[in-house]
Amino acid sequence: MFVITADQVGSRRGRDQASELIGRLEAAAGDRLLLPPDQTAGDEIQAITDSADSALALTLEATRDGHWSVGLGIGDVRMPLPDAVRKASGPAFIAARDAVDAAKRAEGRIALRSGHAATAARAEHVEALLRLLVLLRHRRTQPGWEVVDLARAGRPQKEIATLLDITPAAVSARLKAALWRAEDAAVPAIAALLADLDAASVETSEDASST
């Protein structure tokens, strides 16, 4: 299981962005969320999914604007699930708590933790790659995001040029500078590593319960 915990940066000095992030997370993961994202304590948001692809999508969405410290926890969750994510518990939630605390001091404000000691070292390796992807996205300019978002929505480059009132060559240049193809290549690779880490956590739990 994957638990995402996000804590708003500088919430005492700015407006509460919790409801806005919840909406974005719902759009990013859709029906792969096991429970609706929830505001748990103050300005903190939690979400849970059993999909590595969705966990990565949630993490990237929450880290996109740099306004949130984001922790991704991987591990077991106590079943059956309650009716709200704030009532759920288990090693994945503890791992996400440790991760968000670490994220507050980390580059990119992102951290990953495993709920099992046996997979902690592997989690550090995946975290390093995940942080690189987040930092790549943080270097993207607003004009870069404009063309990337439109391209991901399926708009042809000529149409993007018309919508933004720029030349097709400018669209191509912005996409290249945004490194969007590098991101698209990295996303499935990192999602696969997250899935492997989750599977290893399940195996660790099963081995522990059988002894």
Rank of each mutant, 00 (worst) to 15 (best):
residue 5 T to F: 11
residue 7 D to C: 09
residue 14 G to K: 12
residue 15 R to T: 13
residue 20 E to C: 06
residue 24 R to D: 06
residue 25 L to W: 00
residue 25 L to I: 01
residue 27 A to I: 05
residue 28 A to M: 04
residue 30 G to H: 08
residue 30 G to K: 08
residue 32 R to A: 06
residue 33 L to P: 01
residue 39 Q to N: 11
residue 40 T to W: 01
residue 42 G to Y: 02
residue 50 D to Y: 11
residue 52 A to I: 03
residue 55 A to C: 02
residue 66 G to M: 00
residue 73 G to A: 02
residue 73 G to N: 03
residue 75 G to K: 04
residue 75 G to Q: 03
residue 76 D to Q: 07
residue 76 D to N: 05
residue 77 V to W: 03
residue 78 R to D: 09
residue 80 P to N: 06
residue 81 L to T: 02
residue 87 K to F: 13
residue 87 K to N: 12
residue 89 S to E: 08
residue 90 G to K: 06
residue 92 A to H: 10
residue 97 R to V: 06
residue 97 R to F: 08
residue 104 K to S: 11
residue 108 G to S: 09
residue 110 I to S: 09
residue 116 H to T: 12
residue 118 A to R: 15
residue 120 A to T: 14
residue 124 E to I: 12
residue 125 H to G: 14
residue 134 V to S: 00
residue 136 L to M: 13
residue 139 R to C: 09
residue 141 T to A: 02
residue 142 Q to P: 10
residue 142 Q to S: 10
residue 144 G to V: 04
residue 144 G to K: 03
residue 145 W to Q: 03
residue 147 V to E: 02
residue 148 V to N: 01
residue 148 V to H: 02
residue 155 R to Y: 14
residue 157 Q to L: 11
residue 161 A to E: 09
residue 163 L to N: 10
residue 170 A to V: 14
residue 176 K to Q: 14
residue 178 A to I: 06
residue 178 A to T: 11
residue 180 W to C: 09
residue 181 R to E: 15
residue 184 D to E: 13
residue 185 A to M: 14
residue 188 P to D: 00
residue 195 A to L: 10
residue 199 A to S: 13
residue 202 V to P: 05
residue 203 E to C: 08
residue 209 S to K: 13
